[in-house]
Each structure stands twice: as structure tokens, then as C-alpha cells.
Computed example of a mutant assay.
Amino acid sequence: MTDTLSRISRLLHHRTGRLAKGEPVSLPIMATSTFHLPGAPDGSHFYARNGNPTVETVEAEIGILEDAQVVVFPSGMAAIASVFQAVLRPGDTVLVPSDGYYNVRNLLAAQFVPMGITLRTCPTAEMAAADMAGCRLVQIETPSNPGLAVCDIATVAARARSAGALLMADNTTATPLCQQPLDLGADIVVMSDTKAMAGHSDVLCGHVATRDADLFEAIKTCRRLSGAIIGPFDAYLLHRGLETLELRLDRMNANALAVARAMQSHPAVLSVHYPGLGNDPFHQVAMRQMKGFGPIVGLTLADEASAEQFIDDCPLLSSATSFGGVHSSAERRARWGDDVPDGFVRFAAGIEPTADLVAAVTQTLDTLS
């Protein structure tokens, strides 16, 4: 029967089926840096940089969602950096989206280009036709952050493989419940679990998932040698979030779609970007590869002042730079240098009652008309 159960059900009961009488149902926090180790090391735990039972349980839980081996990191950027460190060598070329999360390009430019790595960029919408000749690694982020462009993962994976490149997919905006890049041919998935996976805006964490044993060992070795480990308390917070991920994401996705539909007919809104809308240019490819469209909506208002007023005045919006939490939030992304209009707002739906959120958004937009 185990194979027929959903990944969420298997995650929720990952521990319960193995508990002895009197053991805690809640995941214990193993707050220790060292372990009892008489005699010669025999493969057991001995130092927390090499492994911690709380962290390993969370890795196994995410592994159920990804159907892959997982290494957890203290942030999404630490996860991405570990892949670059494990895979790239002087003389290699890496292709990344020009419209994806800007710190990925910043990291490569600051630390890897000076070591002899060639950095190439391409818009997400053009990634399926991009020149991958000579690439060691291709990275995609779909839907992209913040513009919500979507690329065909299976097509990109096939072309990367033909070019002799590995494909790394950043799945942060979708999560494993909405999209499975490894099933579509990606070699590596990276995520900022700070967002929807943990889901309460109270912990930084990330992960790498792969079904390639050699890649897994290389990435795990990078974590051990660099010390980029997550602590047991943070791992517990991530575990707690994972247990409600499906419920939260269902509401966030529903809220995002409802808000996007309300926005696209409002006169104060110049444009709306959300792959769940039937008229979105990426809707068809998103329908083929996604089971849900995520919590993020992109909207463009008249100018910077209108965008800031909307964010400040909406009573159910928190002005914050992250997403995936229980509170709806928004920010004007041009302030970070993203190539978007000054009036572009990244709206991240939370878990508020849908009718309340739509009413708060539309009433605030009414004041801008």
C-alpha cells in the first residue's frame, strides 16, 4: 500500500510507523554538537557538522516529496552555492536566467567568474531554444522570480543533456507539490525552503535534491567541508512547516488565482502576470508541467508612487521582501534592480480567507483609479 499513498501522507507518517512504545510523536530536537564515540569511528554520529538526527529526519521527509536524495542547507543561496562549488571548475561555462533571482548572477559574477568560469544569461522564456553548446551547467527558475515567466522543463532538460550539460532547476516558487522538475528530466533541484516549505517566515533554510548518487555525494561533501549546515532547531521549524505545506499551499494558490483574476479587470492595473490565468502567455506550458500555479502574482501599476501606495494602504498586505508565508506580502521589485517597470509589484498570497483578501486588494486599488 505504501506506493499508492500520496507523498504528503507518507511524509506525515514517516516517523509514526517506526516509533516504539513511549517514544515522542513530535520530532525531537537533538541539540548537540558531539556524540558519544568510544573506540574507533564506525559510521555512527560523531560530530554535528557531519550529521544530526533531527536534520536527517527532515532531509528524509523532503526526500519523500522530491522522490530523491536531499541535502539541507541554512539558506536557499547556500544550496545553490553548493551546486556551483560541486560542479563548476575553471574553464566551465554556466547558463542562468537573466530574469531569475538576481543574487544567483551576483554570486557567479563575484566568486566564480574570477576563478575562470564563463557566465552566460538568457531570458526564461527563451531558455528552451538557448545556445547550450559548451555548457557544463544550465540553471532554470520556473516560474521565474519576480516576472513569473515559465519555460518547458522537459524540453530544456533534453537540450541540456544533448549538449552534455547538467540541468539545475530552482523550484522555489512552485514547490514539489506544484511541480516535479526531476520527473521532467532535471538533474538537480534547488529550493529556498525559507519560503513556502517552512512557511512561517521564521527560519532560513534551503535544500538540494538529486537522483544522481555521485552528485549527491559531491554536494554533501561540499556542505561538510564548508560547514554550511542547518542547526537542529531550524530543522525542526522546517519539519513543522512541512506538515502543513499542502493545506497552506492550497489556500495560497487559491488566493493568488482569485487576486489575479480580480486584478486583471481593474482599471488601475496595467498588466497582470500569473501562469494560472487563461490569457497568460505561459499558461499552456504551465498547464502541462504544473499541478498548481504558486502563490506569487506580478502586477504593474502606473508608477512607483502608485505601487508604494497600494502596498502601504492595503490592510492585508505586509511590506516584505520574501514570500511563501502565512501573511500576504508585497514589494516593488525595481528597488532591488530587477529589470521590471517602476510600478511592478510582486504580490505573494498568504492564507487569509480568500474573500477578505480579494476585497482588501480591490478596495485599495479603487483608491488608485
Rank of each mutant, 00 (worst) to 15 (best):
M1S: 14
D3Q: 13
L12E: 11
R15T: 00
L19C: 07
P28T: 04
A31G: 10
P38K: 07
P41I: 05
G51E: 07
G51R: 03
V55L: 05
E61W: 07
V71P: 04
S75Q: 01
A81G: 11
Q85T: 13
D99E: 03
G100A: 06
Y102C: 11
V104H: 14
L107Q: 11
T118L: 10
T121I: 09
T121G: 06
A128S: 12
A129P: 05
M132K: 08
L137F: 05
Q139C: 14
E141M: 14
P143Y: 07
P143F: 00
I153Q: 06
A160Y: 04
P176W: 07
L182G: 00
V189P: 05
D193E: 14
T194F: 11
A196W: 03
A209E: 01
D212R: 06
L215Y: 00
C222N: 14
L238V: 15
D250E: 13
R251E: 08
N253Q: 10
A254T: 13
N255P: 02
V259E: 06
M263Y: 00
Q264Y: 05
V269S: 01
Y274C: 04
Q289S: 12
Q289K: 05
G292A: 12
L299K: 01
E304M: 11
P315T: 01
W336T: 10
G337K: 06
A348L: 08
G350M: 05
L357K: 07
A359P: 06
A360Y: 00
T367S: 14
